[in-house]
Design a protein around this nucleic acid. Sequence first.
DNA 1: GCAGTACTGATAACCCATTCTCAATTAGAC
DNA 2: GTCTAATTGAGAATGGGTTATCAGTACTGC
Lengths: 123, 123
Amino acid sequence: MHRRNTEQRRVLRDIAAAAAGPLSAQEFLDAAQSELPSIGIATVYRNLTRFVEQGELRAVELPGEASRYELADKLHHHHFQCDDCGRVIDVEGCSDAFESLLPESFRIRSHDVLIHGKCPQCP
Amino acid sequence: MHRRNTEQRRVLRDIAAAAAGPLSAQEFLDAAQSELPSIGIATVYRNLTRFVEQGELRAVELPGEASRYELADKLHHHHFQCDDCGRVIDVEGCSDAFESLLPESFRIRSHDVLIHGKCPQCP
DNA sequence: GCAGTACTGATAACCCATTCTCAATTAGAC
DNA sequence: GTCTAATTGAGAATGGGTTATCAGTACTGC
């Protein structure tokens, strides 16, 4: 099972690298089609799944939304989602004092923060 | 359209009031059936939707999970979800210094925090 | 009590993100 | 250039949460 470097994969990787936040399969498709109009949604899903298995990408799940994908080597960060356009943008840094809020009997592994509001591009 | 006080609604309201965190429709169903074995999932969904419309309950969306519902008059808080049993438990308090992480051009409206780990009941 | 209608329970239908199928295409070793 | 299997694109199929349908039930005003 030799891996091949297809144009589709190259385009998808470029999109992930240039993204300002995690993208959905549909967003990957839209972005990819502007460079490779014939690419289909099945290919996008197949490759996103594969990139996750290979450790290149990481899935980001947001409430009530389709899965999004971001580079796996990103440092700890959180996300902002615009109420209007729905775009998700990375937020660097983190003020984590969550541990102190729970009793000792809870063994904390991680935490996710999602900030809502309006992004600079929306009215 | 006169509102009626059915046994089903009374049970669902009791369950919501006694919950340690937001419950899914399935969890409402399971809890309700121990008191009212004939209650069906359609009735649960119908009433949860109705309670939300009436402002009694509020929907809580967690990544990759069915909607959950909690009392609408709860004060600002966050949630903990157990990696093992999946239960969701309220976390009082909040260390919010998120505003400072984003540029001024982002107008922040709210934030959600979800803490992951193991609850006291799980190994 | 009775009537009228809001409500319920069972199940079929729906919605939509994701996966599968399969014939056609193409990267890459030789 | 040839060969072969990995990959692709289109559309069908899937799965799970939620909603719609409809005949039967049971609140509540009188």
